[in-house]
Design a protein around this nucleic acid. Structure first.
Length: 420
DNA sequence: TCTGGGGTCCTAGGACCC
DNA sequence: TCTGGGGTCCTAGGACCC
């Protein structure tokens, strides 16, 4: 069996773990730049606030004292996530961390009768040790595990744990699961399926597999099998990522080349840092710019460009250099830019880099790599202490709006001491 | 006024090869 | 008028996930 462990309202729960006064109140957490609602407490869900709602549409509720709000604080969430995952790792024979707030525990080899006790203990332990409430769904496939987890979370009676372990339970669960709630059926496909009479997960599996294949391809076929207890979604092997992206919307639109260039250099620096953290290097460095798509009154321009390197790089100097070159290819004055980003692609392991006989700059490259190693050592403190002159002074997150940010309770001692 | 960020996989079509 | 067949690789776009 798989046990899917999912943190309830994770970002909100992290805020509550250090601010108990938020308990029982409607709370939302916002995306970067305080743009959209990305996490809601049960109370704010009950008020009808939808995922992804632009914050300005519900800000009046905050002003009236009806709703509590926090800017997102990823240092805090990342830290609490690591604590939860380390507890799971002690429990599961095999753990696959699927996102910041959920993980699949492969429980193959553990007897099914023991699973309820194990999972209930786990829920209690995580709550006590980290302050984070979690739900656990158990089933023979990941897709059914998701279904079980939904039930564990949605219905109080389950107390956070639900197991689908018989064909009868499976049919019953699928019968009341709307097709749009199924893992793998997204925003686009759900309405199309509903339009032809497939309203629930049960309706879906009762269609012939050929019917599913013709409309949804191999992905739909996989979901169809998974919902019937046949495993199709492989366990992830933790391979190197294929792309790394750093991008941000700006608090205000930017027109000046130098200012954009600094931001882009910053993003490129972030990508280079991540490459080195993972022991990889990239052949390609892409840059994109976006104007404000919501401002129909302004001219739109969303260019992108990509530089291919002769030898894969992970040094800040080289990645930033390539990004600036790409930026010069696409930047046009006269537009108001709202967002920019850097993507590094064609990633390989650093120790597998082929030396090119045309690499005339090998001395410079070695020097740049050394400089980057020193930067990493100095920057371990978490602050952007050493950076290129091309990058912006101050912290990476500067220049994005964070009006409602909580303190760095778990990663900064001085702020921790302020907790009452 | 204000609208997030970071990923993966699949597919269809075009370019190119022999 | 008549204009092959089969393969690979790349890319853009669309779908999905959190």
């Amino acid at each position: 069996m798989y046990a899917l462990v999912d943190c309830n309202n994770f970002f909100v729960s992290c805020e509550r773990a250090f601010q108990p006064e938020l308990e029982g109140r409607p709370v939302v957490v916002l995306s970067n730049n305080d743009g959209c609602v990305v996490a809601r407490s049960n109370e704010s869900k009950a008020m009808g606030i939808k995922m992804g709602t632009p914050f300005f549409k519900v800000k009046y509720l905050v002003d009236e004292g009806e709703l509590a709000v926090r800017s997102s604080n990823y240092a805090l969430y990342g830290d609490l996530s690591a604590r939860v995952m380390s507890i799971l790792a002690e429990t599961a024979p095999k753990l696959e961390i699927y996102s910041i707030d959920e993980a699949f525990m492969n429980m193959d080899g553990v007897s099914v009768e023991k699973l309820p006790v194990i999972c209930r203990c786990l829920i209690k332990k995580i709550r006590q040790w980290t302050g984070i409430p979690v739900s656990v769904g158990v089933a023979s496939t990941k897709t059914l595990g998701k279904v079980a987890n939904h039930f564990a979370k949605r219905y109080k009676g389950y107390k956070g744990f639900c197991m689908i372990d018989t064909p009868e339970k499976m049919r019953k669960a699928l019968k009341i699961t709307p097709i749009g709630d199924v893992w793998g059926i997204g925003r686009r496909l759900a309405p199309k399926l509903e339009a032809v009479g497939v309203k629930t997960a049960l309706d879906f599996i009762e269609r012939p597999v050929e019917w599913v294949q013709a409309r949804m391809g191999i992905a739909g076929e996989r979901t169809w099998h998974e919902l019937q207890g046949i495993r199709m979604v492989e366990d992830e092997k933790s391979e190197a990522r294929k792309t790394i992206c750093a991008s941000r919307s700006f608090a205000n639109m930017i027109t000046d080349f130098e200012e954009i260039s600094q931001r882009v250099s910053d993003f490129a620096g972030k990508c280079a840092e991540k490459l080195r953290q993972e022991g990889t290097a990239a052949y390609s460095v892409g840059v994109f710019l976006l104007t404000n798509r919501f401002r129909e009154d302004l001219a739109q321009y969303n260019p992108q460009a990509c530089i291919r390197l002769a030898v894969p790089a992970s040094s800040t100097l080289e990645i930033v250099g390539a990004a600036k070159k790409a930026l010069r290819m696409i930047f046009k004055a006269g537009y108001e830019y709202k967002k920019a980003g850097v993507i590094v692609m064609d990633i390989v392991n650093s120790n597998e880099i082929q030396q090119s006989i045309f690499d005339f700059d090998i001395k410079e490259r070695e020097r740049d790599d050394k400089i980057s190693r020193v930067m990493d050592m100095v920057n371990k403190s978490g602050k952007n202490v050493l950076r290129l002159a091309a990058q912006r002074p101050g912290h990476f997150a500067d220049g994005i709006r964070r009006d409602y940010c909580s303190k760095l309770y778990s990663t900064d001692w001085n702020q921790l001491l302020e907790v009452k």
